[in-house]
Design a protein around this nucleic acid. Sequence first.
DNA 1: AACGGGAATGGCTGATCGGCCAATAGACGC
DNA 2: GCGTCTATTGGCCGATCAGCCATTCCCGTT
Lengths: 209, 209
Amino acid sequence: MSTPASIRLMLVDDHAILRAGLANLLNGEPGLKVVAVADDGESALSLWSEHRPDVMLLDISLGGMDGIETVRKLRADFPDARVLMLSSSEAEEDIRHAMEAGASGYVTKNVRRAELFQAIREIHAGGQAIGEHVARLLAAGSEQGVISRREMEVLGLVRQGFTNAEVGRLLGISERTAKAHVASLLVKLQASDRAEAVARGFERGLLKP
Amino acid sequence: MSTPASIRLMLVDDHAILRAGLANLLNGEPGLKVVAVADDGESALSLWSEHRPDVMLLDISLGGMDGIETVRKLRADFPDARVLMLSSSEAEEDIRHAMEAGASGYVTKNVRRAELFQAIREIHAGGQAIGEHVARLLAAGSEQGVISRREMEVLGLVRQGFTNAEVGRLLGISERTAKAHVASLLVKLQASDRAEAVARGFERGLLKP
DNA sequence: AACGGGAATGGCTGATCGGCCAATAGACGC
DNA sequence: GCGTCTATTGGCCGATCAGCCATTCCCGTT
């Protein structure tokens, strides 16, 4: 046929405004079509199997299950699902975790629209897409200790004032293990106690206000 | 006249996608028209005096000068300028500071579109607009303690990983006193340990990355 | 199949924390 | 002058932390 079928998109973001605006924007671009939207990970998964879109645009910060978990589960069920992370975070850890979880691309929300369209097409074609903005970040700060996903979870709980024992309970692991993760965080963040670790987390953009 | 003039809007947000999408969305609504966009506070101010819009939609988190500062300066130059804060932050401090700085309204980015349109019209008509979502937050926790200067100093040191004894030494006071300040911080910041106190400090904007 | 790293676990110990009690001194506003 | 608030200090104690030891399991890479 002369007009190739549109790339069928699914949007997942907890901000209604961004969802609506983005849908508008994407539907205005020839060759792209938004066929489903979701505001959390759970509905994203069920809507995916229902609509079977081509590409999911997924925010990292969602209520409930976060974007990383969502990618992981989606790719476990549909290994050929293609996901473009669309995040406002520039934290190196977020990017790395997203890609490791199976995302095919990662762009920050301040990409130019042309760059976004390009990324979607790239991904749909089977490629990877890292915003150049993002690529620079990755190249830059890959020196220091890499915070693992588990450690990020622990840091998030430490931030909320939980003790090691509580962290263990919440994550379904022993207090010893939680303590080990905290110890590891202290080393990697070059902090001398959990309070400083939290501060470093904010400074590095791992934690968001 | 039969068709009243549109409300002329200006968008200020550092996320290009949200800007583009939102502009689309707003221009699609009869009676609203986006006449200018900016991605930082400085250009927002100069574009305002150039275009003289009716209402500014302003994000709090901007590169460089933040949204609060932008409102303050704008209102200093144009006391009748009307600004609707459009933030993803639900932090009580952010809301309070924005309103104190002269914003006419505050909605979070997950308002429904109808509510957003309503807020814009409300503000243009000279009223105030607090998203109901936001209003609840404000009503809830408006009765917290004020952090004293000394406590701020202590918080700054705790953030850097100093122990109570070290804080005491650095401030020329005894460890007991330092401990008392920390205890007071825990109460006022509703934190259960120093790590959470630091986190709350960042969340409230008392500490900056 | 071997290797490296993350994740999970246990025990031990001295340092540190946070809560609870009470007290004195100076500053500010009414 | 009186009350309120912050800043300061002390003792006591159980809870929690952070450091150091070693071990097992699993996964992805080589």
